[in-house]
């Protein structure tokens, strides 16, 4: 029997309860992050303990919805890690130009900032019309936000810098309309993006992809769940398909490591060898 601390027992029981009641599986998430997110939710909502929260969410679906968002949301920005996008432009885009249809899966798209960043790159490279982009997340609330493509104007300056560093060819303000405190992205960016619900912890392969992008999602998973996701990605890629991870994530700790070769190692851009 593991000798767990009280809070660890409470976290485990809460995650079991969420799974049994609502089917969302956080049981294999990294514990330190999830515990912090739960504690953050406790202090915002004024609920006194994790055990009491467990009781509340069993009987209050609205409260569970709020907790779900807190547990699953990944904070992101447009052109996060500009070097990743420049590497994509330099090393991946040229070989995509040969393809007739390009299927892209952006897994864990959160509120959409990174998938629209990709859409901008694809437009500028003249590839967008050939692309089918599947942008998935487990949380319906972030998907709704992603579909709207409206972001606070206060971030635009940073996004503009990122866009320029990434190698954007135009002026970033070509892609949005400012209104009050918000920037609404050009609706043409949405045309070939299908936003849908998919959970890396429980759902399976849904198509054969040329590229899978899943950045800064797996850092929240434990090793077991990481392996599940890596297998899912391997099984979802076409021959010589491309996998892009976050700059601090790596396929090299996985049992599927040998199935992938480096395209741009520091940017964690890999190619399936078969």
């Amino acid at each position: 029997m593991e000798n767990l601390k009280n809070e660890s027992i409470e976290v485990k029981l809460l995650l079991d309860a969420i799974y049994m009641k609502y089917g969302y599986d956080f049981r294999n998430y990294s514990k330190a992050s999830i515990k912090r997110r739960i504690e953050g939710f406790l202090s915002q909502s004024g609920i006194g303990s994790i055990s009491f929260l467990q009781h509340e969410i069993l009987y209050n679906q609205v409260l569970f919805g709020k907790l779900l968002s807190q547990l699953s949301v990944n904070v992101t920005q447009m052109f996060r890690d500009p070097d990743f996008y420049s590497a994509l432009i330099k090393h991946v885009i040229p070989e995509l130009k040969k393809k007739k249809i390009i299927k892209i899966w952006h897994a864990g798209c959160s509120t959409g900032e990174e998938v629209y960043s990709l859409a901008i790159i694809l437009k500028e490279e003249g590839l967008y019309n050939k692309c089918r982009i599947y942008a998935t997340d487990m949380d319906e609330i972030v998907l709704q936000k992603a579909k709207k493509a409206i972001y606070p104007i206060k971030y635009i300056q940073e996004y503009t810098l990122n866009y320029n560093k990434a190698g954007g060819q135009k002026s970033f303000n070509d892609y949005y309309t400012a209104k009050y405190d918000f920037a609404m992205l050009d609706s043409g960016l949405k045309e070939n993006i299908l936003f849908s619900n998919h959970n890396l912890a429980s759902d399976s392969v849904f198509g054969e992809m040329d590229i899978i992008i899943c950045r800064n999602v797996m850092i929240y998973f434990d090793r077991e769940l990481q392996e599940r996701a890596f297998k899912l990605f391997k099984d979802s890629l076409c021959a010589r398909g491309i996998l892009c991870l976050g700059s601090k994530e790596t396929i090299r700790i996985s049992e599927y490591s040998d199935a992938f070769e480096d395209i741009v190692a520091p940017q964690k851009i890999y190619r399936l060898t078969k």
């Binding site: 601390k5 660890s8 990294s30 514990k31 330190a32 992050s33 912090r36 997110r37 990944n74 904070v75 992101t76 800064n216 850092i219 929240y220 976050g246 601090k248």
Partner: peptide
């Protein structure tokens, strides 16, 4: 940078 109970590191991009 976070420390897990099993003395391994986790990273997060939370705000």
């Amino acid at each position: 940078l976070l420390v897990e109970e099993d003395k391994t590191f986790s990273l997060s991009v939370d705000g």
